[in-house]
Design a protein around this nucleic acid. Structure first.
Lengths: 256, 256
DNA sequence: AACGTATGTTCTCCAGAGACGAACAAATAC
DNA sequence: GTATTTGTTCGTCTCTGGAGAACATACGTT
C-alpha cells in the first residue's frame, strides 16, 4: 500500500530530540527535565544533557518554574523573515488597511507548499484564532492561500496540489476540480473569499501581492466573524480596499 | 592560567553543530552544503546529514540559491515572546509614543543577564542600527538596560554585574562604581539617558516598566541621532513622555 | 519531625549513532 | 571538450550520546 519509499537519507537523532524539546517547550511554555523526558520518551539523563546543551547555546532559558524557550529564537525568526522582501513592503500598508476596516489583517508567504503568516495586525475586538505569526496553514483553506494559488505559476501550483485536500470544516473545498474552478473565479475578480472554509464562523477576503518583476510574492487578507463581515460590506467594499492595498504593496515590493 | 573549570556537564555535539548551521544560515542568508561544511569545520557528509535533518524537521528551507532558514523559526520566536506579559502590554502604547516623538522606540526584557529587544517601532526616517528584534545587548550600554538595572532587585543586579563592563564606544561606562552612581541618578530621576555609550552619534532615553505586583518587567526607550535629539527636547520633554508611557504600560502589565 | 516522593544532577557502561573520507553523479565554469 | 565544483551516497570505525541506577535536594503530607 505504502509507496516504495527510497528511504535513503540518514537523519540525525540527536538533532531531532533537541528540536523535540524545543517544540515541547514552545507548547508547554515551561517544563522540567522529568516532564520533558516523559513527553519525548527518552531517559532523564538524555533529556538533561539536551537541555543543558540548549541552555549553553542560549536557546533555552532557566526560569523560576522550569525551562523555557529563550528569546534568542526571536532573532532567528526575524532574520528568516527579513529574507522576504514582502515583509517590509507590506507592514505599513497593512496597518492602515486594518485601521480602515477593523478586524484582523495578515500577510502570508508560501514556503514548501504551505502558507506562513509573516505579519499580523489586530484591532481590539479582533477574534482570537490560531493564526499566529509563523504558523503554517494549508493553502486551499484560506483566502490568502487561494489568492496565492490562483496567481502563482502553473508549474508551482501543480507541485503544491499533489496530495489530497484536507477538510477543516464542512465548507472546505476538498475536490480538486472545485478548487481549480474557484481559482479561475479568483483570477477573474482579483480577490478571494474564504467563507468558513477553515474555521466555522470566520470569513476572510484576500488578494495576491504581485510584483511585475518577481511574480507573486505572497498574499494579504482581512478576516473576521461572519456576524460582522457580511452584505455589501463583505462582498464589495472590503474586497476593493484589500485589492487597493495589495496593489500598493506590490509596487513597493518591486522597487526595494 | 585558566581557572579550574569544574567541567562537569556533558554537552551534545550533534545539537551544537545543528545550531551552528542554523546560525550560519542566519548570518549568510543562504548557503550550500560545501560552504557550510567549510565554515563549521566538519566533513561534507556530516554537514549534509545535518542539513537534511533540519529540512525534514522544517527549520531549513531549500531555495533557489541554497539552503536558508525557514519561517518556522518565526513561530518559535513568537511563542517565546508571548511568555512575557510585557509584550502585549507595551505594543500599543509604544506605537503611540513613537508617533508622538518620531525616531525609534524599543521594548527590552532581561534574560540571562543580557537585554533582548522584544519589540521595535520605527518611523520612516529612523536610523538603521543593529538593534534588531531578538538581538542581545549588554545592559550597561543602553538606556533600557540601565533603566532595568537601576530598578531591579539588588540581588539580581549583583548577579548580572559580575564580569567586566565591555566598552563599545569611548563613552561607554566601564567602571563599576561609575555605573552604580549612574544607576543612583537614574533611580532618582526615574529615567535613563544613553549618550553615545553604545553607538557613536546615537542617543536614547529609557524608563523601566514597573508592575507593583511583579517588580520590573523590562524597560522601554526612544532613540535617535544626536543631531535630532538634543536641547530641552532631549533633556526634558522626551523623558517626560517616555516615563508617562512606561507608567501606563506598567499598569497594563500588572492587570493582565 | 520524620517520612515519602518528587525533582534535578552525576556516574558508569556499552551499543550504535554519527563523523569521516572516498567515490559517485550532476551541474557549472572555462 | 575538459576541469572544477557542487550535492549526494556508501562503507567503515570510533567515540559519543543514550539508558539506568545512584545521589542530592526540595517539597508535601501525615
Amino acid at each position: 500500500m505504502a509507496p516504495s519509499e527510497p528511504r535513503r537519507t540518514a537523519t540525525i537523532g540527536a538533532t531531532e530530540t533537541s528540536f523535540g524539546i524545543v517544540e515541547y517547550l514552545r507548547d508547554s511554555v515551561t517544563a522540567g527535565v522529568s516532564d520533558i523526558a516523559n513527553e519525548l520518551g527518552v531517559s532523564k539523563s538524555t533529556a538533561y544533557n539536551h537541555v543543558r546543551t540548549l541552555v549553553k547555546l542560549g536557546y533555552v532559558a532557566e526560569t523560576d518554574d522550569g525551562y523555557a524557550l529563550s528569546l534568542k529564537f526571536l532573532n532567528l525568526g526575524d532574520h528568516a523573515r527579513r529574507r522576504h522582501a514582502l515583509y517590509h513592503a507590506a507592514k505599513g500598508e497593512m496597518d492602515d488597511l486594518v485601521d480602515a476596516i477593523g478586524e484582523r489583517g495578515q500577510v502570508m508567504i508560501e514556503e514548501n507548499g504551505r502558507g506562513v503568516y509573516i505579519y499580523q495586525v489586530r484591532t481590539d475586538h479582533a477574534v482570537q484564532t490560531d493564526s499566529h505569526i509563523g504558523n503554517f496553514v494549508d493553502l486551499h483553506t484560506t483566502a490568502v492561500g487561494k489568492s496565492y494559488l490562483a496567481f502563482c505559476e502553473e508549474e508551482r501550483r501543480e507541485a503544491i496540489l499533489v496530495g489530497d485536500l484536507a477538510a477543516l470544516t464542512p465548507e472546505t473545498i476538498t475536490d480538486r476540480d472545485d478548487l481549480l474552478e474557484e481559482l479561475d473565479r479568483i483570477r477573474e475578480q482579483g480577490h478571494a473569499f474564504n467563507d468558513e472554509e477553515r474555521i466555522t464562523g470566520m470569513r476572510a477576503v484576500g488578494a495576491p501581492i504581485i510584483s511585475d518583476r518577481h511574480g507573486v510574492l505572497g498574499a494579504i487578507s482581512v478576516s473576521g466573524p461572519t456576524t460582522r463581515m457580511n452584505g455589501e460590506w463583505y462582498r464589495r467594499e472590503i474586497p476593493e480596499k484589500v485589492k487597493q492595498a495589495a496593489r500598493i504593496i506590490g509596487i513597493r515590493g518591486t522597487y526595494s
